[in-house]
C-alpha cells in the first residue's frame, strides 16, 4: 500500500511534538549538567550553551562511583535474569495449566503489588537480618528476583498465543517443560524484551531497599550515590544532574538493546500467521 505524503507529514508532525514533550525534561537535565553553578537559574533551559564538562569530573569524584556502578550492574543483572525467567515460568503456568487453587494463587500474587512497599519495610528488613544477609548481594537480589508485575505481563502474552502450536507437540508426547523451552520461549522475545527492560529499570533505579539492607559504602548501588548531591541543606543541581545523566546512560543503552527485539518482530513474525 502506498502512503499518502500528506498523511505522512502529519504523522511526523504529531510524533515530533510528542517526542519533544517526552524528551524535554531529559534535555533540561543534560543542559543543567553542563552549566556552571552560577547560572543555574538562568535561561536557556533546554539547549545547552554552556559546556562545563568539569561538572562530570567533579561529580564522578564526589563518591566511589565505579564501585556503585559495579554494584548496580551485579544487582540489576541478577534481578533482570531472575525476573524474566521465573516470571515467564509462572506466567506460563497461569496461562496454560489448570490446577487446583490457580486463580486464588494468581490473585494473591497480584495482591502483592497492591501493598505499598514502605509499610512492609520493617518486616522485610527483619527477615534479611535474621538470614544474616545484611550488606550482601543476596539481600539486594534474592528478595526481588520474582515480580508479580512481570508474571502478569507474561500471562497476558501467553494467553494470546494460539494454543494449537502446543497441542500438536503435546500429541507428539512432548512434556510441558520441553514445550515451554522449545516453543513458547522462542515465540516470546518481544515480551521478554519488554519485561526485561522494565525489570532493568526497576532494579537500576531502586533506592530505598538497597539503602536499608546495606550498611557499608562498598555495597551501595548507584542511586544511593546520587543522594550524595541531594544534601540535607541544599541540592548541588549541576553535579546532581551530571551524576544523574551518567547514571541514566546504562538504562538508555538497555532500552536501545531491548528495542531491537520490538522492531525485529514486524518483519519476521511470519511464524504467527
Amino acid at each position: 500500500m502506498k502512503t499518502n505524503p500528506l498523511r505522512s507529514v502529519l504523522t511526523h508532525l504529531l510524533l515530533l511534538t510528542g517526542a519533544f514533550i517526552s524528551a524535554m525534561p531529559f534535555l533540561w537535565m543534560v543542559t543543567t549538567s553542563l552549566k556552571p553553578a552560577g547560572v543555574l537559574y538562568q535561561a536557556p533551559l533546554l539547549i545547552p550553551t554552556y559546556f562545563e564538562w568539569s561538572n562530570y569530573v567533579e561529580a564522578w569524584k564526589a563518591a566511589p562511583f565505579p564501585r556503585f556502578f559495579l554494584n548496580s550492574a551485579i544487582m540489576t543483572i541478577g534481578i533482570t535474569l531472575g525476573q524474566t525467567l521465573f516470571s515467564a515460568m509462572a506466567g506460563y503456568a497461569f496461562a496454560r495449566l489448570r490446577f487446583p487453587g490457580r486463580d486464588v494463587l494468581f490473585f494473591l500474587i497480584l495482591g502483592t503489588m497492591m501493598i505499598p512497599f514502605p509499610v512492609t519495610l520493617i518486616p522485610s528488613f527483619l527477615i534479611i537480618a535474621d538470614l544474616g544477609w545484611l550488606d550482601t548481594y543476596q539481600a539486594l537480589i534474592v528478595p526481588r528476583v520474582v515480580s508479580a508485575f512481570a508474571i502478569f505481563l507474561f500471562r497476558q502474552f501467553f494467553l494470546s498465543i494460539p494454543q494449537e502450536l502446543e497441542e500438536a507437540a503435546l500429541i507428539d508426547g512432548a512434556n510441558r517443560v520441553v514445550i515451554f523451552a522449545r516453543i513458547i520461549l522462542p515465540l516470546s522475545t518481544p515480551v521478554m524484551a519488554a519485561s526485561a527492560i522494565f525489570s532493568f529499570l526497576f532494579a537500576w533505579n531502586d533506592f530505598l531497599w538497597p539503602l536499608i539492607v546495606t550498611n557499608s559504602t562498598e555495597m551501595r548501588p548507584i542511586q544511593v550515590g546520587l543522594a550524595f548531591f541531594q544534601g540535607q541543606y541544599g541540592i548541588f543541581w549541576t553535579l546532581l544532574m551530571a551524576a544523574t545523566v551518567l547514571a541514566t546512560i546504562p538504562a538508555i543503552l538497555a532500552f536501545l538493546v531491548a528495542q531491537q527485539r520490538f522492531i525485529e518482530g514486524i518483519t519476521s513474525s511470519g511464524l504467527k500467521g
Binding site: 528488613f125 527483619l126 530505598l208 539503602l211 536499608i212 559504602t217 543522594a227 541531594q230 540535607q232
Partner: peptide
Amino acid sequence: EAVFVPGSELVSKLQTAIAGRQTPTMAISD
C-alpha cells in the same frame, strides 16, 4: 567508620536498624 546515609532516609534507616537490632555504634540525627 563513618557511613553516609541520605538525610531524607536516615530516620527510616535508624528505625529499621533499631527494630532489627542492627544499630551502628553511634549516629546523628536532625
